[in-house]
Amino acid sequence: QHGIESTRERIQAGKPQKGALRLYAFQMGTYLLLELWDDGRGLDIEAIKQAAVKNQQFTSEELEVMPLPQIESLVFNPGFSTDSFQRGVSEKGMGLDLVQSTVKRLKGAVYVGSTPGSGCMIQVQLPGPMPPVHLLIISVAGQKYGISIDQVQTTTHLPAQGSKTSRHQEFVGEDGQVVPLVSLADILEVEEQFKQNELCPCVVVVVDGKPLGCLVDEILCEQEVRPQPQGLILKKVRNVSGATILNSGEVCLILNPDDLIRTAQKHLAVSLSS
């Protein structure tokens, strides 16, 4: 019903005697795409509809108004088969179901498309390696953090204050711009380590033209790294956009400047009102 026709059928259809399979692999954005094409008869849509009704998955009325891509995707349903004679795994409707479940475990997706009489295409999308990013590596409370260099306006040194209540709320940058100032240790809710009366390193980040000065313990270096995919746990962590492994083998959290500015605005509002 599906797939490559017999030699006789192909000759009658004006096709080469031997069927063709083409496999393509390429990257699109952060995804790896695999495409398998054949030049066979394509999916038998009527056979798929009949099997769906026979298996009591859908009624004829539902299938009549169902979009074609959704009907084609029924071949991925568990146990779905248009073959009346179940001789093996694929005939039991387990082949494409196993493909889809495996791809989903890899956090990917699989799609099918077909042109009657011309062939079929199956596309697998898998998360690929994320593009490298250039980070400024800093230290706060003994932990290394990274900030995208694209969102760092400048770095400087400012006099450190001995207590949170006496901390400067802003400073004037070299270009005369007034920059709100916070301790990154305060924002991340960790213990700061720079000492009183020392010059404290400051990283000025900017988002949509809004600057924020962040006092840190140390400004260490710049590195080009590949961020790791953000898991469910990190997605719930405020001020963090991801993580990476530094050249030293250490784990480094990547800070989210958008979140930092929002959190800083709340801290500054509380500080000014107290």
Rank of each mutant, 00 (worst) to 15 (best):
T154W: 02
L184I: 02
G213Q: 00
R8W: 08
K15Y: 08
P127F: 03
P180S: 08
T102N: 13
V237Q: 10
L234C: 09
K54F: 10
Q143W: 00
H2L: 12
D259G: 15
A52R: 11
N256D: 14
L36D: 11
G146K: 09
D217C: 06
Q86D: 12
Q56P: 04
E72R: 14
L246F: 05
Q230T: 15
T156A: 09
Q70C: 06
G176V: 04
S101G: 03
A264T: 02
E192N: 09
C202E: 05
S148Y: 01
S90D: 09
R105G: 13
K236P: 00
Y31E: 15
K266T: 13
V207A: 01
S139D: 04
I45D: 02
I147E: 00
L255T: 06
Q17M: 15
M66G: 04
L212N: 02
P159H: 05
T244L: 08
R87C: 14
V53I: 15
D97P: 02
L199V: 08
N55T: 09
V240E: 07
P78I: 02
K104P: 03
E192M: 07
I149E: 10
L106V: 04
S81E: 11
K49Y: 00
C202K: 01
L32H: 13
Q223T: 03
K15N: 07
E218K: 13
R41Q: 15
Q151K: 12
P201R: 01
V270L: 12
T263L: 08
Q100S: 15
S90L: 12
V225G: 07
E191G: 02
Q70N: 10
S84Y: 15
S241T: 12
F26K: 10
I187Q: 01
V89K: 10
R41Y: 02
G19Q: 10
S114A: 06
I147C: 03
F58S: 03
F80S: 10
I245Q: 15
K107R: 11
S273C: 06
A47S: 11
H157P: 06
V89A: 12
V225N: 07
L36V: 12
I261S: 00
L181Y: 06
N247L: 14
L184T: 03
C214E: 07
E5P: 14
Q123P: 10
I48V: 11
F85D: 11
Q177W: 00
